[in-house]
Design a protein around this nucleic acid. Structure first.
Lengths: 116, 116
DNA sequence: CTTAAATATTTACAGTCATCTATGTCTTGG
DNA sequence: CCAAGACATAGATGACTGTAAATATTTAAG
C-alpha cells in the first residue's frame, strides 16, 4: 500500500487543459510526465518500446539504437520508469521495458481532449 | 514565406508514438512542444488561456494568477508562443494570448493516438 | 567459485533553465 | 510633449539535467 501517487496516477483525475484552469497541485502532478517525454532520447525510447513487437523491448536492443553510452540509456529508462510510463521486468540477465499505453492515453486526453 | 517549420508544424506529420519508432529529426521537432508544456507555470498558463472565455486572455489577467514577477510570466508566455502553442495579439495597451487548440490536439494524437 | 555479460549506480561536469531586478518600448491620456 | 501603465528584453544567478567514466550488482555458464 502506498499513499503517494506516482506521476502517472495523477493524470487521469483531471479534466482536459482546455476545460478549466488546472490547479497548481494538478499541474505539479502532470509535469513529471511531460518532463519525462520532453527529451529527444527519451521520446524515441518511449516510441521504440511502444512500437516494438509485443509492446516491450530489452535494454540491449535499445542501446544499439543510440550513439550514447549504456549508463546514459539506463538513466533515461529510469526516468521514464519512475514517471510511470514504462514498466520493468527482469528476465534472466535481460531487463525488458514495456510501455504503459494507458498512461500515454490519459496524458493525451488531458492535453487534447475534446468534451462532448 | 518561411522554410523552417515551427515546433507545432512538425507534429501533425508523424504517426503516433506507439505505431512506429520516431526518427531522431521527428523527435527533435516534437520535443520543443513537450518542453514548453513541461513546466508547472506554463502548463497552468496554457490551461488558463485555453479555458478562458473566448479562448483568450490578456497578460494582466494571467499575472494575477501567479505569485511570480511580471517578467517571469512574460518569459513563460514567450516560450509557449515560440513553441506555437499560443498566438499573440496586441490590442491597444493590452496583449492577448490565444490557445492554439489544434496544436494541442495534434500533440495529443501523437502521444496517445489509437489507430483504427 | 570464477568469469563474463547485462544492466544499474555513483560521481563529476558542462550546459540549460526558471527566476529576479533593472531597464526598455510602446500606447494612451492629459 | 509628458507621464503613467502594460508588457517585453537584458543580464545575473542558483538550481537542475544530460552525459560520460568508473564502479557495482546480478545472473548464467563452466
Amino acid at each position: 500500500m502506498h499513499l503517494e501517487l506516482t506521476a502517472v496516477e495523477t493524470v487521469a483525475c483531471c479534466s482536459p487543459l482546455t476545460r478549466e484552469p488546472l490547479s497548481e497541485p494538478e499541474a505539479e502532478g502532470i509535469v513529471p510526465l511531460l518532463k519525462a517525454l520532453a527529451d529527444p532520447v527519451r521520446l524515441r525510447l518511449m516510441s521504440l518500446v511502444a512500437s516494438h513487437e509485443g509492446g516491450e523491448a530489452c535494454v540491449c536492443d535499445l542501446n544499439d539504437a543510440f550513439d550514447l553510452s549504456q549508463p546514459t540509456i539506463s538513466h533515461h529508462l529510469k526516468v521514464l520508469h519512475e514517471a510511470g510510463l514504462l514498466d520493468r521486468e527482469k528476465r534472466g540477465v535481460w531487463v525488458y521495458y514495456r510501455a504503459r499505453t494507458e498512461a500515454l492515453e490519459n496524458l493525451a486526453t488531458l492535453i487534447g481532449g475534446k468534451e462532448q
